[in-house]
Each structure stands twice: as C-alpha cells, then as structure tokens.
Design a protein around this nucleic acid. Structure first.
Lengths: 219, 219
DNA sequence: GCAAATTAATGATTTATTCAAG
DNA sequence: CTTGAATAAATCATTAATTTGC
C-alpha cells in the first residue's frame, strides 16, 4: 500500500515530461523506468517512446481520449449498429459451410467468405471467425445436452437426419483429410494477412469506409 | 455409418465437376448441396462458389496444395524459423509495457508496438498479441502457485520487490483507469484493421517480404 | 568437448466461459 | 433467451537449455 504509492510517485517524477505513456488511447501512468540503465543503452536510443503516442501525424488532439476514441481509433463503430446482425442468406451460407465440414477457417478462408457474404449485407472478417467459433461450441454443447438428456449411449449418433450425420460423422473425417501430415499451420486470426498487407498500405487508418451497401434485411 | 456413406457418395456425384470445394488450401469434399433448392434462388445466383477457390487470379496451379502451400498461401514460413523468437530488446520492451500496466493491447496498440519492436528483429502483430496473452496468463498462474505454495493469506501481497507491486497493485488500478466506462470495445485480433486496409490493398498476397533485418542476436 | 536425449520455457491454437446487445 | 463478441483457461508444438553417455 505505502510502497506502491512510493513507486507511483517515483515513476511520475521520472516521466514527468511525457504527457503519459499513452499507447493508442488508454492512458496509464508509466512505471518501472528501469529501461535506460540495465544493459544496453542502444535500446533507449532507437526505441522512441514518443512515437508510441502516435507514430505519424503529430499531436492530434490533446487529451481528447474519451471523445476522440469513437472516431479515430475505432474502426467499426459506425453510427447505429454495434454488432453484426447476419442476414438470412449469410446464415444459410455459413451453415452450409459448417455442414460442409468447415470448423475453423484460416485467415484466407475467412477473407474469402467475408467477401462472398458481403454481397448480402455488411460483414467483417471477425464476424465470420466468431460465428464459426460460437457455432462450433454451441453445437457441441447442444449435442452434449442431448446425449445427457436422453441418457443414451453417447457414442452412437441416433441418425435422425442427414444434416446431423454430415456434421458429426462424415465431415469429421473430411476435416482432417489433408491438413498436412505435418501440423496445422496456416490458421486464423487474420494477423498474418494484415501483417503482409501493411507493407503496401500507407497507414490510411482514419476513414471508416462503408464497403458493402448494407442491405435492408432484418431477419 | 451406411447413411453417411450414402451422403458422401451423393455429394461427390453432385460436385463432381468441381475439383473440390477447396477454400484456401485445406481440401474437403463439399457436402450438403441443399443451397440451390431451399427458398431463394437469388443466393445461388450471386454466391459464386467458384470464386472461393481463388477470387481473382485464375487457376494458379492444379492440385499443388502440399508443395505450393509453403510459398504462395503461407505468409510467415520463411526458410529457417517458423515461430517468433524474440530478441532481448523485444522482451525487455514488452515486459516494460507489461509492468507499465498493459495487459491486452488493442489492434492499434499492437500495431504500434509491432512497428517499434520491429527495429530489433522480425516480428508480427500476432506475436505481440500472443505474448501479452501468454505472459498475462502465466504471470497469473505463477502467482497462484506462489500463493498456494506459501499457504499465505492470499489477499496481502508480500511486497517483495517493486516490480511485483507494479504488476499487481498499482497498475491494477491504472488498468481500469480510463478504459471507457462503457465496455472493452476496441480489442485486439487485428481483424478490424485488416478489414479496413483490405480496401486499399489489392491482394498482393504472394511475396514473403523481409521487413526487418533480423539482428543476429541469440540469447 | 560434443551431439543425442531429455527437460523446461514459451510461442501458437483451440476450447470453455463470460459478458452483453437485441 | 438467443447469440455475437471477448477473454481466460487449457492444450498443443517447437525451440532453447540442460543433462547424459561417449
């Protein structure tokens, strides 16, 4: 309690000339100033903390974090809808892909799906990603609930409909059919694509383009 | 068993003219061709499954998945290292940021950190993200292990070093200082940034640029 | 000393859980 | 109550330490 207070003060004094070590928009008091005097002084030289505030484009707006955040640092906060509201067609296609055996699409797959589904309404890559995550998990727990509720032999699927068989049986083997004998490598998240594309894109950053015309759908 | 086999055959026959519904590189037999005949035929019209193989750029290489993957669809598979191997400087900076209170940086923060850390060695955004995830989790479990091993009162930190206090106490309050009263919104994954930048980048996709000169470090 | 074998750390993914919008 | 979004926990996999037999 008292010691942390001391550290706090110390750090404050040390970093006084900086507005604060604000990275992005969340502000926090920088502590632990042991960077400069440990082993290699070259770090301090080339690691410019100031550029962390905002790499290019000088001081944009002093301290306007809470208001400014909604416009500059946020990307997906359009006026109106916050979270993705899938259309019927999008759901249908996603379910088709799921039934087709797709469980965790990688970044490229996600991108392609996003492009396709974008024809039916606004959608982002992360929506596709989350949909598969959630659908898989909830299908799993639904199935568990069923097998427990029926108190049935949990290893034999009841073979009710084709769909269930596709989901459980056939595509299970399809899933692992050619995922490389080595290991699963090219996985999702989309970071890799982003990393690559960053080199060509000159950090445009601030516009919030409306890519898809946002079909008036509503399910 | 038998039914799934039937479905399998049926699907195969139905999709015979397609090489396979290969999305990205993982191949799987497309099943459940119930898209066309359900409710709205307009989907089939504009949802072009062929473009899933590869949206632009025609047939690149027939069936050459297993070999081609290492060069064209993979991004991070440079000759040599597969997974990120952080340099001393990178670790030092990351730990500094962690001690400074950063726990789950959002996409923009990750990008900026990545740029900074790129001065000391090759790094991607996802590496930064994963580092924070792992570090946070393992710091947590280490702490839990300690509190259990010492069989001490788990509510009073022993106040051993400054660092521990910074990590646990002071920055805990800093963490929630200005993360918006609303909710955590601008979060990581990098999908949002990717989504945005995709509009400017024309799917260059195939080069494996060496952005940073990969300092000969070795720890 | 030095590789092969083993172990410890830790980067990368997946799964479970939780939060919150509608 | 359903489900999109986000985080935490658990797990997998790979690289560096290290031990060990020679």
């Amino acid at each position: 309690m008292e010691l942390s207070m001391k550290v706090h003060q110390f750090a404050r004094g040390f970093w006084e000339h900086e507005p604060s070590l604000s990275l992005g928009c969340k502000r926090f008091r920088p502590l632990a100033p042991k960077l400069a005097n440990t082993e290699s002084g070259s770090i301090t030289a080339s690691f410019d903390l100031k550029s962390f505030i905002r790499p290019e484009s000088g001081p944009r707006n002093k301290l306007g974090c809470s208001d400014e955040k909604r416009e500059t640092t946020q990307v997906e906060t359009q006026p109106g809808g916050t979270r993705w509201n899938p259309t019927q067609e999008q759901i249908r296609i996603l379910e088709m892909l799921y039934r087709g055996g797709m469980r965790t699409p990688n970044a490229q797959q996600i991108e392609q799906i996003t492009v396709q589904l974008g024809k039916f309404g606004k959608i982002e890559g992360k929506n596709v990603f989350y949909w598969f995550q959630n659908h898989k998990a909830r299908e799993r727990q639904k199935q568990k609930r069923n097998s427990l509720g029926l108190s049935h032999c949990p290893r034999t699927p009841p073979a009710t409909s084709i769909t269930s068989i596709i989901t459980l049986d056939t595509l299970g083997e399809v899933e692992r059919e050619e995922d490389s004998p080595y290991k699963r490598k090219c996985r999702s998240w989309g970071f890799e694509s982003m990393e690559e594309e960053r080199r060509y894109c000159k950090e445009e950053g601030d516009k919030t383009l409306e890519l898809f015309p946002l079909h008036p759908e509503g399910r």
